[in-house]
Design a binder for these strands. Sequence first.
RNA 1: GCCCCCAUCGUCUAGAGGCCUAGGACAACAGCCUUUCACGCUGCCAACACGGGUUCGAAUCCCAUUGGGGGUACCA
Length: 489
Amino acid sequence: MTQQVRTRFAPSPTGFVHVGSIRTALFQWLFARQTGGVFVLRIEDTDATREVEGAVQAIMDDLRWLNLLWDEGPDIGGKFGPYIQSQRLEKYKAAAEILLAHGAAYKCYCSKERLEALRAQQVQNKLPPGYDRCCRNLTPEQQAEKEKEGITPVVRFKTPLQGQTVVHDIILGDVTFNNNIVEDLVLMKSDGYPTYHLANIVDDHDMEITHVLRGEEWMSSTPCHIMLHNAMGYEVPQFAHLPMLLGSDHAKLGKRHGSTSIRQFREQGYLPEAMINFLALLGWSLDDKTEVISREDLVTHFSLERVSKTAAIFNYEKLQWMNGVYIRGLSIDELTEKVFPFMEKYLPPEIKRPLDIEYVRQIAPLIRERISTLKDAADYTGFFFLNELSYDAAMFTDKKMTAEVALTALKGAEAKLSALENFSTDLLETTLRHLAEELGIKAGQLFNPLRVATTARDAAPPLFETMAVLGKERCLKRIRAALVKLGGN
RNA sequence: GCCCCCAUCGUCUAGAGGCCUAGGACAACAGCCUUUCACGCUGCCAACACGGGUUCGAAUCCCAUUGGGGGUACCA
């Protein structure tokens, strides 16, 4: 019987989660779900200096928002807890002791100053930078002496000097490293915390992680991790290194490329479903044509075999398109509910809050196919709420439109519309089309000034539907204001 | 510098020796639809980095080259 797959997402609480990390989490989650396995959330807070207050909560919030739920984790526990590394310090200490006792690790008393000087010298002499293993073979007497000086040592791994280590990577294939290029990495820092290298192998073993999926930036330290597993007598998990996510200039995706934290996308009004779909396609594909794919289909079809080896550039435009696809797939009620908080937040401040949600519901169908993020809704709908529209009278005129024609059109409209009892879309359309005929002008010559008068924009949702939502009173008031603006009294 | 990885349209990718005159999507461009915008639809531009092999046959396999990326911390 093959054992159940167990994957883990192991972020550091150093701020909001990067989309690249989320892509990794997604693949870990998909792989676990696809195989009927377990997805573990573990917090790697072994660097106290980089810790950010509230970050653990933020990580969990974002994962929940994406519906990437974990089966074991800091909040819900599990049989291998605790799931926060700072609460597992004794385990790492014990592991370090074992390695020390077996002669697989040693105490190093070198000061930071010495290490820095050493590195500087190596760089200057164009030598490969790295620790010179100065403390690797200290005698007990020498050690006692250092201890007497009051130096708190770090624990370093006594890396095998000979031989090779082969990483059997599910995505990359077999990758061979010469052991002599692997450094004597620090396992325990002088502050009593383990480094990532130690903590991660101890926990992966304790938590029975079967598959380590992580970004390709970890490839170089993988031989060391394998050696550590071996030194501890642990079974080595399977590795799969995911291709990197890059920015438009082919450098590691960073702030200058645009939004990078998942939270930023959320705040701009991207839907979690769209993010999942988009991220899944960064490094994985179903076939030669599938672009829009549901979470369910992702779970049933995901496989590590179809993960690409090539780094992918994060294409913001495609994400935007895809978000639009998902927005258009929303029902009016769903869209209303989702768009409401964004409108509350981003509509001009002079608009009275709270907004009338029923009014928003009427507006929703008019913007559904015009917005690509929820935040866009606020840009499109201000005129629905404003009491006074402000715009330039020049908007009424262009190459084929004079102020006179605009004036005639609006005067005619004012007369016709004030007689109308019912402001339905259909009635508005027939009435206004007739009016254009009567006035002897083209439909556009009537509709365009009306659009400007009622919305203060030259690009807006369909005119009749817009006017129907605005209602008779608002429309007439705005048309009259436009007449004044045009100097027609 | 050293170690490791990668290499198909601008971008995401399909392609696991003949189905490839290289497919799809985003973007761009040109149209259609249309009261504007958008949606939708149609069309169009556009790639196997380079050089050697292997083979009857190579985008697919091998080797160099070049290019790009990652690592090289008491960070993860």
